[in-house]
């Protein structure tokens, strides 16, 4: 008898636990409702960006309601297809994306490109960085490049994604900028940034090409050293880390993350979304989230965004052509 009672209480407890509320705000908002389309699964980089931005907008009362739809598949191509084919009813939808959309349309993974969408704005950037283990013999980027020029096989550079991805293209651009032959670069691909970092710490590889944000935490713990970052100027989180430009190599690279609307989105709506994102930057809620995650603001709305994307496409496309990834 007693046992039955206990069981029932447990079922009740279960229901209560599941019902832990997800809070909603009801203040008067700038935009009533937005739907975020995320081309990858819960927990990934795209997911974190969309949910982070969504949360800042909700908490600051700028946005009334938000929903988040994860649609993984085809390296992001599935969600892109979906947004384009159902464009008419997707006027309240923002698709989150980042630099890989450019790479994947260049290699023809999916036939569409950012030109088939309505650019809203870029929101944040993560710069690329070259990282070594704390007891590495390398102290500066120049030493690595010097060794590379002597014997390209002696400097192997690891990264958290396949050949021809950002992690590969950035060191290739740097080597080319320094007058080396990027075709001679031995790039060691890992299937995730974390695993590539573990490879660096285990001595599997000597140099790692990764996102600045991903390396910052470990650099602060004195486990790794960041030798160079691909931003225009030194970053406030790590003022001691020189930029690639300072070594006399004209390479800058930002992995942007931003939002797109459906094709044919009325200009008024697109403008409203751009204004909404612009307002977000000044809210304490955003500053809090951005600082905690180590993001850099990068606001380039509308036409500015398109121009930026075209520039990046040119730079990446040139490198990919040189490495033989596209004809």
């Amino acid at each position: 008898m007693k046992r039955k009672w206990f069981g029932r209480m447990l079922v009740l407890l279960a229901v209560l636990c599941m019902a832990l509320p997800v809070n909603m705000s009801f203040a008067a908002a700038e935009v009533e409702e937005l739907h975020f389309l995320i081309p990858g699964g819960a927990g990934g980089g795209w997911d974190g960006t969309a949910r982070g931005v969504g949360k800042a907008l909700l908490d600051s009362g700028l946005l009334g309601q938000a929903s988040f739809e994860n649609m993984s598949g085809g390296g992001g191509g599935k969600a892109l297809n979906h947004l384009i084919s159902t464009a008419k009813r997707q006027q309240g939808t923002m698709l989150v994306n980042s630099t890989p959309i450019i790479i994947r349309s260049l290699t023809g993974v999916f036939p569409q490109s950012f030109r088939d969408l309505t650019p809203i704005s870029s929101v944040i950037a993560d710069y690329a960085a070259l990282v070594v283990a704390k007891d590495s013999k390398y102290q500066t980027l120049d030493q690595i490049l010097a060794d590379f020029k002597k014997d390209p096989r002696s400097v192997k550079i690891a990264g958290g994604s396949v050949r021809g991805s950002m992690d590969h293209l950035v060191p290739a651009m740097i080597i080319k900028g320094a007058g080396g032959d990027p075709l001679k670069l031995v790039y060691i691909p890992y299937d995730a940034g974390g695993k590539a970092m573990a490879g660096l710490l285990s001595g599997d590889t000597q140099v790692l090409s990764t996102g600045f944000g991903e390396a910052l935490g470990l650099a602060n713990q004195d486990m790794v050293r960041i030798l160079a970052v691909t931003s225009d100027e030194r970053l406030s989180q790590a003022p001691d880390v020189p930029t690639v430009k300072e070594s006399g190599i004209d390479v800058t690279f930002a992995n942007w993350r931003g939002f797109f609307g459906a094709p044919g989105l009325p200009e008024a709506k697109a403008q409203a979304y751009r204004a909404l994102l612009k307002k977000m930057y000044d809210t304490p809620e955003w500053v809090d989230i951005r600082n905690k995650r180590g993001w850099q603001d990068l606001y380039k709305p509308g036409a500015e965004f398109t121009a930026f994307l075209e520039d990046q496409e040119k730079a990446i496309g040139g490198m990919m052509r040189e490495l033989g990834f596209i004809q």
């Binding site: 599941m18 019902a19 832990l20 997800v22 929903s67 988040f68």
Partner: peptide, 12 residues
Amino acid sequence: FIMSSLLGVYIA
């Protein structure tokens, strides 16, 4: 209900 309301997963 578990997916959409409690876990906040969007089901189209």
